[in-house]
Design a protein around this nucleic acid. Structure first.
Length: 414
RNA sequence: GCGGACGUAGCUCAGUUGGCAGAGCACCAGAUUGUGGCUCUGGGGGCCGUGGGUUCAAAUCCCACCGUUCGCCCCA
């Protein structure tokens, strides 16, 4: 006997009830997003590596350290998608959709891959629900997509979630702010900052703002924030988004220290956070990415979108109740087998869910099976029943038992 | 990539100063040939994560690796 093969680290097998939870998430998403005009787009898992390097940003951790990248047999460098947006943009550009319709709204769902250390709410193969709204530059698009996201989370029955929003400015005002923050940070006592923050000064100064270490937080308490330094155009856009959210009854919170890890975000950014699932609390992240399509070689079309982590949503879902079987057919004598097959077929054709015994077993055994399956009713079939063309129906909850004619058994089910 | 915790039966876990590998649940069989989900009795099941070291003797102590898990970083 050879050793059994084990699954790859960070890749999960999903059994019930978790698989049902995922199906529920997917179906709810398709339905709710459909109400807002989103259509489903399925893009490939493999893309050319170049797409992500250009789309997500060469210097980001995702691209630098976390991608599953390998050469195919023709020598091309391919990458298993670490996120969905870049692939959707590539697809949008390739199909020339900007020429035929002013607005494109896409919903995608599927596995993503990042080479990270697995932990709670984080796998190497994980799943995201994505929405992308391409075309509109108006704040109404921002407000609509956030409203839709909250509608979706509402229908899932998840409570105690909060949308945090911020504006990251645009290509005009962000570089100036970045420099302003850097100048401000240079006067801090460097030895009191954590090593990560000292490193961030060089790599990504904006990240100074969302360090979780209390000492750093108090040091940077009075740091200038983007939202106070955005240009008038960005300010107007942001204020309009906030006003529309209020009008739509979406509760939101300004988080001036929220930063995004992917380079393409600008202006409106948002996150949905839960404090119930440990450190990986961000359930959804999104924002506007007006320059992205052009950067990828397409037309200059603005866009906004978000990604929701299925594994994290699944952890917050109210307990999934699996559908209970309606019946279990307990065969207690061999000669009743044919009858049992016919009976199960008729019940299933009538829409009832259940199972049957594939061989005759003792009553004691059959009752244990019926109890384990949690079947509503146990149908007992033996020689007596076959002779009389009857079946005993035992209600497993009340213990009551009645005899019913085999011919119209369906009428005894509700 | 970095840090902590944990790896013993299908599952949940005991296992004392190093001394015969254990319990509960689950499964199978019998008591009990069609009124049974209870009870009782019996049974199958283990490279004690892997490899090395210490020892008369290692599930137990030491080292390394692998895996799981919770954090950091980063992200959904």
């Amino acid at each position: 006997m050879s050793d059994p093969i084990k699954r790859v680290k960070g890749f999960a097998d999903l059994f019930e009830p978790e698989s049902t939870a995922f199906t529920f998430l997917e179906n709810t998403a398709r339905r709710v997003f459909g109400l807002y005009g989103y259509t489903e787009l399925r893009t490939p898992i493999l893309e050319r590596t170049e797409l992500f390097a250009r789309g997500i940003g060469d210097e980001t951790d995702v691209v630098q350290k976390e991608m599953y990248t390998f050469p195919d047999r023709g020598g091309r460098s391919l990458t298993m998608r670490p996120e969905a947006t870049a692939g959707v943009m590539r697809s949008f550009i390739e199909a020339n959709l900007a020429n035929s319709q002013p607005v494109s709204k896409f919903f995608t769902y599927g596995p993503m891959f990042r080479y990270e250390q697995p932990q709670k709410g984080r796998l190497r193969q994980f799943h995201q629900l994505n929405c992308e709204c391409l075309g509109p530059v108006e704040p109404g698009a921002d407000a609509e997509i956030i409203t839709m996201l909250m509608h979706f989370l509402d229908e899932l029955g998840i409570e105690d979630l909060c949308v945090e929003i911020n504006s990251l400015g645009d290509r005009n005002c962000r570089p100036a702010y970045r420099q302003k923050l850097l100048d401000w940070a240079r006067q801090l006592p460097a030895d009191q900052l954590c090593p990560d923050c000292r490193r961030r000064m060089n790599t990504n100064p904006l990240r100074l703002l969302d360090c979780k270490i209390p000492a750093c937080q108090s040091l940077t308490q009075d740091a200038p924030v983007m939202i106070d330094n955005i240009c008038p155009e960005c300010r107007e856009h942001f204020d309009a988004v906030c006003a529309l959210l209020d009008k739509n009854g979406v509760p939101w919170k300004l988080n001036p220290r929220m930063v995004r890890g992917l380079d393409y975000y600008m202006r409106t950014t948002f996150e949905v956070v839960s404090n119930k699932i440990g450190s990986q609390g961000a359930v959804t992240g999104g924002g506007r990415y007006d320059g992205l399509i052009r950067d990828l070689g397409g037309p200059d079309v603005p866009g906004i979108g978000f990604a929701s982590g299925m594994e994290r949503l699944a952890m917050l879902l109210p307990e999934v109740k699996l559908q209970r079987p309606d019946f279990y057919i307990a065969v207690v004598e061999d000669m009743a087998m044919n009858c049992a097959f016919e009976l199960s077929r008729n019940l299933r054709r009538a829409g009832f869910k259940g199972e049957m015994s594939f061989s005759a077993k003792k009553m004691k055994h059959q009752m244990k099976v019926a109890a384990r399956l949690n079947a509503r009713k146990c149908l007992i079939l033996g020689s007596l029943e076959v002779e009389n063309q009857m079946v005993q129906i035992k209600d497993m909850d009340s213990g009551e038992q009645i005899a019913a004619p085999l011919a119209d058994i369906v009428n005894f089910f509700e």
